[in-house]
Design a protein around this nucleic acid. Structure first.
Length: 433
RNA sequence: GUGGAUGUAGCUCAGUUGGCUAGAGCACCAGAUUGUGAUUCUGGGGGCCGCGGGUUCAAGUCCCGUCUUCCACCCCA
């Protein structure tokens, strides 16, 4: 019986695994450069954990099951609830700021499409316990720091930044009841995707006031952050939120990533839990869905039964990122084939035992800080074939055991690139490894 | 969940109005080549033609269903 891979999943053969490792190594390195520590949690949690913020409709969109103890469980579709749970459990003893990152494998039961799979990896970076725009700046910087290190420049990607706090203050200042905001956000989030007329119609349905529709359009079409704009003076809260956002841009410029950052009020994010700055990174051409998204979520820990602790963070999935890197030719150079430091060959099959012994000694000399690998051939072919095999496995050096080895324990070391050969006694060779 | 496209060797694909034993290139394995490799030449292994049903003397080819993949919508944590 032939069994296929499940819909929306990927098989990582060595070449694909090399790409995945390249991406994840980059995530990890950027996290560590910026002072984040790695954490992880279980791959499944109680189903109700994901219903806390998203309601029952979320159940259809995740893989859930009942275990033999009749527990209703779900494979994690995101790691933020796990993070909230873990932090809440130890909130009194964890030193602040809590700067953690993770690269969880996540599953969502959605229809696959471009840049969207049912199983993927998502880099998460969060700063918890700091109610300061500095933390937001650092999360955004870390995100850009990684993308920059992967080879993406300000002409390739932009971090579009806006403020949920400012948007909320503006809407309330314009006359919208605070308890209606959650129904308006998902509509505003669609503005970039809809033709103006359709958007206005949708918006009118939730605000029921044509003047408000115009005002909101004005606010969302403003692409420069400036306190000259008439909407800034609506209320003290708008002024405060404006100043905060302005400070954020100032910090990002100081950090040297100002070129990557633009103000974009159409970045709303559908989710209700954001409370401050929000951002998404997009490809400049606008051909792909968002590379990542994030923002401040000051109420989440409290919603998960913990204390009111502020937090800000970001999530970046591997799917869109890989498409983008690949389109820009940035993952072609990854050595997908295996490489070998030493291939041990011999001219006479009697020397196979010696080759095995020497290979083992080279491997033994490898240290954690100095890895080196060595192989011999399983096949007892002619010397020509062994050399052919050395080429095939990408060996940088081939060690040849020949008559000289029998006579005076001398090895021939052949550089596979240049073809140069030198002789060395086995003892000298092993001592200099 | 809705709609469109798709499926032939490991990969990229060809396969005539339905008609002999389903092909090519690349990849893989082996030999040419028993002390010098990566390019050359020769040979070889690989196919439930996605799966199931139907029409037909005859189906890779036509019809129906189903699954996968891709794309868009819904949703987007």
């Amino acid at each position: 019986m032939k069994i296929q891979a499940v819909k929306g999943t990927r098989d990582f053969y060595p070449p694909q695994m090399a790409v995945r490792n390249y991406i994840q190594d980059g995530w990890k390195a950027a996290s560590k450069r910026n002072g984040f520590e790695e954490y992880d949690g279980p791959i499944f949690e109680y189903l109700k954990m994901y219903q806390v913020k998203s309601g029952d409709e979320i159940v259809e969109q995740l893989f859930n099951f009942t275990d033999r103890g009749d527990r209703h469980l779900a494979i994690r579709p995101e790691i933020t609830p796990t993070l909230a749970r873990m932090v809440n459990q130890q909130i009194n003893t964890l030193p602040r700021p809590i700067k953690w990152f993770s690269m969880p494998r996540l599953c969502r039961a959605e229809r696959p499409q471009k840049g969207r799979l049912r199983e993927f990896f998502q880099w998460n970076v969060d700063v918890i316990g700091i109610d300061d725009i500095l933390a937001d700046a650092e999360v955004i910087f870390t995100t850009i720091d990684y993308l920059r290190s992967a080879g993406l420049g300000p002409d390739d990607i932009k971090a579009k930044i806006s403020s949920r706090r400012m948007l909320a203050a503006f809407l309330v200042g314009a006359g919208i009841a605070a308890d209606k905001l959650d129904t308006i956000y998902p509509v505003l989030d669609k503005k970039p995707k809809l033709p103006p007329a359709a958007f206005n119609e949708m918006l009118l349905k939730v605000v029921s006031d044509e003047n408000l529709v115009l005002k909101i359009n004005d606010f969302m079409e403003c692409d420069k952050l400036s306190d000259d704009d008439e909407w800034v003076d609506i209320s003290d809260e708008v002024v405060a939120a404006y100043k905060e956002l302005d400070d954020l841009f100032g910090l990002l410029r100081k950090m040297g990533v100002g070129d990557y950052c633009v103000y974009d009020p159409t970045i709303v994010r559908g989710l209700a839990y954001y409370t401050g700055p929000v951002f998404e990174v997009h490809d400049v051409k606008g051909e792909l869905r968002a590379v990542c998204g994030g923002g401040r979520y000051d109420n989440l820990l409290k919603d998960f039964g913990g204390p009111a602790v502020s937090a800000t963070g970001m999530g970046m999935a591997d799917a869109v990122l890989e498409i983008l890197l690949s389109e820009r030719g940035l993952i072609d150079k990854i050595p997908a084939t295996k490489s070998l430091d030493y291939f041990v060959a011999y001219t006479d099959s009697h020397l196979l035992q010696n080759a095995i012994e020497l290979t083992a000694k080279i491997r033994e000399s490898a240290k954690p800080d100095k890895t080196q690998n060595a192989e011999f051939s399983y096949k007892k072919g002619s010397f020509g074939k062994l050399l052919k095999q050395a080429s095939a496995v990408n060996a940088s050096k081939c060690i040849i055991l020949a008559q000289e080895y029998i006579d005076k324990k001398e090895l021939i070391i052949k550089d596979m690139q240049s073809g140069d050969q030198q002789s060395l006694t086995e003892r000298d060779f092993l001592e200099n490894l």
